[in-house]
């Protein structure tokens, strides 16, 4: 029990580090809602994995990959406003996923469960988290400049379209590995809440990224700990811990500006 708790805890920490660091850019890009809806696309992918007996997370990743390619294509090849389409299309895929997933697996797919994680699953999650972390740190300056002004970033030779695709790809991988923890329904929150809290207390980009990760890690630790002591599913506890931090950070911000 003790070693398993540690395994879950360490994996949760790594996954939330990469998710919350990514989240700081999702929030800066004002893509919170798109990102949240996007994560729902994983659900039919999980369903197909469960039904056809292969790793559901591979199914989730394939569906996410198709979704980000679709978003990217809509953004650069058409003049269709993407917000509404994303909302409609991705929420429908959530509905489809709910219908497809066998009843007994539905709760886990929607809200996640890491208490059953094996060592090999844990190692894979940690490796992918580290890859994401490195990838984000390599491109963060370009991402930040692109967010301030895509014209400025273009003028210094950054390929905005390619950068956007890399960013969306990182998003897809982060959601696929995070889904085991908090499920398809809550994944968006795992990415966004720590960053939204960090924005309340940060003035600089470096503070923002650090606080986002710190808040993500605190949520992961407290969520895992509470789930063990209260014997409840960890996913919702991660999110609620994160939400509590958000409330506290908002109070901090409010006090600062009064």
């Amino acid at each position: 029990m003790e070693t398993h708790f540690l395994l879950v805890l360490i994996t949760a920490i790594f996954v939330s580090i990469s998710a919350s660091l990514l989240g700081s850019f999702v929030v800066l890009k004002r893509m919170s809602l798109v990102g949240d809806a996007l994560s729902h696309v994983a659900l039919p992918g999980l369903a197909i994995g469960i039904l056809l007996h292969f790793d559901p997370f591979i199914g989730a990743f394939i569906f996410l990959f198709m979704a980000i390619t679709g978003i990217w294509f809509l953004k650069y090849r058409t003049r269709v406003p993407i917000d509404a389409l994303v909302g409609i299309f991705f929420t429908s895929s959530l509905a489809l996923g709910v219908l497809l997933i066998p009843q007994q697996d539905l709760l886990e797919a929607m809200f996640g469960d890491i208490s059953t994680i094996t060592i090999s699953q844990s190692i894979i999650s940690i490796i992918f988290s580290l890859i994401l972390l490195v990838a984000i740190l390599i491109i963060y300056k370009k991402l930040a400049l692109n967010m301030v002004s895509d014209e400025l970033s273009h003028s210094v030779g950054i390929d905005n379209k390619k950068l956007d695709f890399v960013y969306l790809f990182i998003f897809a991988v982060a959601v696929a590995i995070g889904i085991r923890f908090v499920g398809a329904l809550l994944m968006g929150a795992l990415v966004i809440i720590p960053a939204a809290s960090a924005k309340n207390v940060s003035k600089s980009l470096s503070e923002f990224m650090v606080w986002s990760v710190v808040f993500g890690v605190i949520s992961a630790i407290s969520g895992t700990y509470l789930s063990y002591t209260l014997n409840l599913t960890p996913g919702p506890l991660f999110i609620l811990s994160g939400a509590l931090i958000f409330v506290l950070s908002s109070v901090f911000r409010w006090l600062k500006f009064v």
Partner: peptide, 17 residues
């Protein structure tokens, strides 16, 4: 830019490649 964007002037200047 948004009024409360978490990016200082110094960081902005250092966003040059």
């Amino acid at each position: 830019v948004e009024k409360h964007i978490p990016l200082t002037v110094e960081e902005f200047l250092k966003l040059q490649p």
